[in-house]
Amino acid sequence: MHLIDLRSDTVTRPTTAMREAMMMAEVGDDVYGDDPTVNTLQEFTANLLGFEAALFTCSGTQANFVALMAHCQRGDEYIVGQQAHTYRYEGGGAAVLGSIQPQPIEFTEDGTLDLDLVASKIKPDDIHFARTRLLCLENTQNGRFLPLEYLRQARDFSRSHSLKLHLDGARVFNAAVAQDIHVSEIAHHFDSVSVCLSKGLGAPIGSVLCGSTDFITRARRWRKVAGGGMRQAGILAAAGLFSLNHNVQRLAEDHANAHLLARGLQDLPQLTVRYEDNQTNMVFVTVADEDVTGLTERLRTENIIVSPGTQMRLVTHLDITTEDVESVIDVFHDHFR
């Protein structure tokens, strides 16, 4: 049965070629630092993004958590978007396990954080307040890539306020491909960047955190504390290497399919479709309350899976073809006929 799964780009499955690379991977013990495939992945990713070092982690959540722990100490604070993954969707790990206080603020319409608003949230050097140490951005944010000029402004702002700057770059390659630039043009603005391998790049597991050598040394310790010290992890790292070598430029196909999907649904009066100029592989659809259940059930009968709700996020990825998108459009139109 062919399923068209639009819930997320995390649902991708390894290709035959990726599975073969995993099967043939040379392995060691990564806790001892002698898994050659993990080491190759870390060196490759660090060089690709323009950093001194990198660390392979179990997940994006773990990569962001150890980044926060490496940048901040107990009683410190990081400023972050209200809907950002590092604040809203990672279990509050920095606060729960690290005693690091988040200061969330609303995103603007284009997915950026207003730097004047950020400035107003930086705490004075006073014993009454947590110490503001870090600004976290997200690229892409709800599928929207951040403009390079804004990244330059955020870098200069952070330096002028003595803040470190971290990027949750789970989909940073989507941002780079959409702007037709090398990923290092985004990454070099930041003190640290996390990259997810298991979303649009198609690996089954894992993220890579990049930064300076000293920063990664601190992050490695926190990865161990968080239970992320894996052993023969080269089997997983091989999938990550394969994804970085074969699946980056093809992200443009996902963006084209998302654009096709948005155009195909925009003329339905029962839907409000949001797909902006800086969107990549996500289409957001607003459905009336009374239509949600019927639409979701109809889609499922056609082997189309979505996350149900009045606000639907439809995500294209390497397991979604142009023909799949055309089928989805046809089902939507037929349902609302």
Rank of each mutant, 00 (worst) to 15 (best):
Gln232Glu: 13
Lys199Trp: 09
Gly229Thr: 03
Gly211Cys: 11
Ala119Leu: 05
Met282Lys: 07
Lys199Val: 00
Gly309Met: 00
His333Phe: 11
Ile79Gln: 14
Gly294Val: 05
Ala237Trp: 09
Leu241His: 05
Cys136Ser: 06
Met230Arg: 09
Arg300Ser: 10
Ser327Gly: 00
Leu314Pro: 15
Tyr150Glu: 06
Arg131Asp: 11
Val283Phe: 07
Asn278Arg: 12
Arg274Asn: 05
Ile216Asp: 06
Ala237Leu: 00
Leu135Gly: 05
Ser327Pro: 00
Arg152Ser: 03
His2Pro: 10
Trp222Gln: 03
Arg19Val: 02
Ala84Arg: 00
Asp76Glu: 13
Ala70Glu: 13
Phe107Gly: 09
Val80Ser: 07
Gly111Ser: 07
Ser327Gln: 13
Arg131Ile: 08
Asp30Ala: 14
Ile79Gly: 09
Met18Ser: 01
Gly200Tyr: 04
Ala176Val: 00
Ser120Thr: 09
Leu251Phe: 10
Ala94Cys: 12
Arg159Ser: 09
Glu297Ile: 01
Trp222Cys: 01
Gly111Pro: 03
Ala178Cys: 04
Leu113Ile: 06
Val248His: 08
Thr57Leu: 11
Gly202Cys: 03
Ala154Glu: 12
Arg159Pro: 06
Phe65Ser: 04
Ser207Ile: 01
Lys123Cys: 02
Gly92Ala: 09
Phe284Thr: 07
Leu3Ala: 08
Arg263Ile: 00
